[in-house]
Structures are given as C-alpha cells and as structure tokens.
Amino acid sequence: MNASTLRLLAALIAGVLFGVGLVISQMTSPTKVLAFLDVAGNWDPSLALVMAAALLVTFPAFRLILGRAQPLLDERFHLPASRSIDLRLLIGAAIFGIGWGLAGFCPGPAVAALGAGQADPWLFAFGLLLGSWVAGRLPS
C-alpha cells in the first residue's frame, strides 16, 4: 500500500478510537455533558476527567511526536499557523459555548451519535454545517 492509502486507513482507525472513546465516556449523552456544565446544580465532574485523561496521553505524546522531523505517513505536520489571541477567537469561542450549553452537544459527540437512532444529532449536524457555512462567508 502506498502512503496516501495508508493515511486514509490511519484516519479511519483514529476516527474509530475517537468515536469509541466518546461513547464509553458517555459524552454522546447530552444530559451527561450538561450535568458537567451545571456547576450550580447536581454537578457531575466526569467531562473534566475525560479531558484530563485525554491530555494525559496527548501531552507527552505530542511532545514526542512533534520532536520528530515529520509524521510517519506524510512529509510534514499540518499545524495551525495562527498564534495571536484575537477578538475573532474569543467571540467564536463564546458563541460556541452558548450553543454547547443549550443542547449539550459539541461537534465530536454529535457526529459520533449520528448512528444512535435519534433525530437530535442529525438536526444538530444540519445546524452545525449551516452555521459553519455562514461563518466561512464572513470577511477575514
């Protein structure tokens, strides 16, 4: 197999691991996510532990990986170039937070729940694509 086929396979494997992880940690259940954000109610810290456990892997792993000259199957790392904390970033993150707090879905869990046999992930994904499309048409 050539490198481009292997890259597709690698992406598939990473996607499967990501999806299984989201389901096992119950992040595909909006009630679980909202229980984390509800700090004044019956608080459920599970989401914080999910992030902490993920960072426990990515923090050392990224350090090792980015210390290499290039990834195994590509010629270079594709990393975000932007460095500055600007208004666009902060306003975007704030609007994202409001939407997240409304329904309890962020993009990963919503996509991973598309096969759950429920309408909500599909409705959310429809809104997600539309909202992203609109933001992509804003002047930069």
């Binding site: 019956n42 532990l49 980015l66 195994l72």
Partner: peptide
C-alpha cells in the same frame, strides 16, 4: 455528585487521547 462516572470517563478519555496521538503521529 452521584452521577459521577470516573472509570468510564478515564477509559474513554484515554482512548480519545490515543486517537488524537495516532492521527498526529501517522498523518501529522
């Protein structure tokens, strides 16, 4: 905090972190 599920949160989180590491390591 009776809804707290630490074991599934840790197992799921480790898988998510592994997925992110695999994608960066192999595909950059």
């Amino acid at each position: 905090m009776e809804n707290f599920t630490p074991v599934s949160a840790i197992v799921g989180g480790l898988l998510i972190g592994t997925a992110a590491a695999v994608l960066l390591w192999l595909n950059g």
